[in-house]
Design a protein around this nucleic acid. Structure first.
Lengths: 394, 394
DNA sequence: GTAATATGTTCACACATCCAACAAATCATC
DNA sequence: GATGATTTGTTGGATGTGTGAACATATTAC
């Protein structure tokens, strides 16, 4: 039944979870800090940390730097052999990585593709890559599981990909197939939702409980929402599809109104075209944008920021976030003219909602999706360390 | 410190909370059902219910109806003397009510106004009404506190009304002033957000963890969101302001695109005008709408449903709710042509998001806001029955 | 009536956290 | 460089929670 936090056993599990969660979040915490943060007794923390160490989830190391009077407290770190495997199938490549707790990507392989693969082929290739990576791990390693960041609508409950247009997948049970192929617990979710989660835990949105993440990728605009400190998935887990929202700039002197989906109006292709670029490299695009003095380019950037501000207006009114995190080329066009977007948003949102919100760009860089995907696998482990680690070990 | 669910004391408090929460939600539960639902032991439930009864929060009554073999289990009900006071200041009246747990409005007074009052006057009048109502209560009554549903942007943290245009309030500390005037703990929130909460707990959204509530009132469109089974407030608590979203119908043969805020386009005034009505009575409006065969009225209803469908499209894409609840005149125009809205939304949202969502009208009727406001006061009591009830009693 | 069933009641028990006392390791001071 | 102050680790007993088995009780089924 649903006995959560009811009996003594559950208390212990919950406390284990809290401590492992703090270690995961901080990367390295002294036992005395854990005592302070959890409010638990010194002796209790010692026992719990001992149990986590016995499960090979954390290690205690001698305090290195000197930090004040009193007996030095041992530093608790994620166990280097406790990892998750992150998978990111894309149009042009499959990336698989090994990720430690605290979002540390230890190693990764990128398997380039001529053309997007079907689900079965993708699973076959991925399973091979996973096997290669597992061979590098010590036999005693604890593998929390596999998390997949998929560019499409993913039913989080069971990791069924309902629709991934750029992979041409429909109702593809990736999580189930991956689990069969590897024997590991598998989870899948939308890539942008996982980006939001990663930025929330380790990136620009640390300690922010209400944020919107918007990512501009080659194939469109994806997004994710963190509300009340938790990922907002919705019933199916499809939440965060900002790209398909209908937005229209209000009529202006030189900007006639035109309605369309956000990702049709705010679009990387239009920028590349005006810049005369063929490459899809995000770094190159940003450099070109920042250095261009072509008025047509500036005008297009302003137009796109204008449309984006409408989408943000609506999202901010509804969600009242503390932070908007922009990733991909949205971060780039924001960087071209930071003040413009601020002003546009300020002019449209309710004063009370606006005064709390900051707009920043994503900070996690290229590892973002692997970190987010790994989070999927770590989440159940952290929620109940003792139960999961028992079944997981290698 | 943040010791939540860590030690033994917290376990008991949490279990008390769960049981009181179930009683609040169900209205009347047998002890054996509580045992099943909580997963706790019979003896534990007996002890916990006994403690709640001693705090005068619940009463145990003899099982009336016969329900099967075995020894009958006592029925646990909310204590009739445990109440919250709900306040709803509006443009034309101040309503104050006494509400029991399980959303039972016991009594209410409506104080009509010539013109909207300022904050201080409102608090003075309200305090008087509260005093009158308290006089009707037995001396032993437990008053959880006062909850206020305010038509405006309310900072939930401290119950500061940032902006209530129709009351002409700016930065009005209602909760604080009411607390001073009555000596009771006071809370305030946006009216539509509380409507969403009430519909979630007791109305159309029972057992639905992800829903959107949209209310069409005389002064505009308000809304609220429940996500992950919790009210989505955002940082400040201003979330749910769907009314100010910019929406545009896509260009169509007979419907040229026009951008505007949702509440300007979908508007009760336009309907009243076409119907030739002056009254603002919701029941009368609905009857007129349903019986009118004026093509201009039908056209306007269709137009408003079209615009509403855009707003819903965007909201559904972002929030992937299980349910959309329509209150006020939005429920009325929906009732005129249920299929149209369904079709429009179906045509615009992603298939995966659409298949989970149902659109229904609100079910709680006129008591909605009082029930929602009372919830504000009950919430802390239910979260920690022992602590709050000790300090609250009269 | 008697058996079966489900639940209330009682009390010994298990066990997670707390607490107090002591030990250990660092810093500050003379 | 020794001493005291401070902080934290360690240990073993105290506290109080939920559990579970045995018994009592009230209803239904036959």
């Amino acid at each position: 039944m649903n006995n959560r936090g009811t009996n003594l056993d559950t208390v212990r599990r919950y406390n284990l979870s809290r401590i492992l969660g703090l270690v995961h979040h901080s990367g390295a915490v002294s036992r005395s800090t854990l005592t302070r943060e959890t409010g638990l007794n010194r002796s209790t923390v010692a026992a719990l940390v001992g149990e986590l160490a016995a499960l090979r989830l954390v290690v205690e190391v001698e305090p290195a730097g000197v930090r004040g009077v009193g007996r030095p407290s041992p530093i608790v770190c994620p166990h280097p052999d406790c990892v998750a495997i992150a998978v990111n199938p894309e149009q042009d490549a499959i990336t698989v990585g090994i990720v430690r707790m605290h979002g540390q990507v230890v190693s990764q392989v990128r398997h380039e593709l001529e053309e997007p693969l079907g689900v079965d082929e993708t699973v076959r290739v991925t399973a091979g890559l996973v096997a290669d990576l597992r061979a590098q791990l010590p036999a005693s390693a604890v593998i929390a599981g596999i998390g997949a960041a998929v560019p499409g609508l993913v039913r989080m409950r069971d990791g069924l990909v309902r629709l991934a247009p750029h992979l041409a997948w429909v109702d593809a049970p990736v999580a189930m197939l991956l689990a069969q192929a590897t024997g590991l617990p598998c989870f899948a979710a939308n890539d942008a939702s996982l980006g939001a989660l990663a930025e929330h835990i380790f990136g620009a949105g640390r300690d922010v409980n209400d944020l919107i993440y918007l990512n501009g990728g080659p194939s469109g605009i994806g997004g994710g929402v963190i509300a009340n400190g938790m990922p907002l998935g919705g019933v199916g887990g499809y939440a965060g599809e900002f790209g398909h929202n209908l937005v229209t700039a209000p009529d202006g002197p030189d900007q006639p109104s035109a309605g369309g989906a956000l990702e049709d109006e705010v679009n990387r292709g239009r920028l590349l075209e005006l810049l005369g670029l063929k490459s899809a490299d995000p770094v190159e695009l940003e450099r070109a944008l920042l250095h261009s003095d072509d008025p047509a380019v500036r005008r297009e950037v302003s137009r796109q920021l204008g449309i984006l501000s409408i989408a943000l207006r609506n999202a901010i009114n509804v969600l009242n976030p503390e932070l908007v995190v922009l990733g991909g080329f949205l971060g780039s066009i924001h960087a071209v003219d930071e003040e413009l977007l601020e002003q546009l948003v300020a002019g449209q949102t309710l004063a009370a909602s606006y005064e709390d919100v900051r707009i920043v760009r994503a900070t996690l860089g290229p590892d973002l999706l692997l970190i987010g995907a790994a989070e999927l696998a770590f989440e159940p482990l952290i929620a109940d360390p003792a139960r999961v680690a028992m079944g997981a070990g290698a």
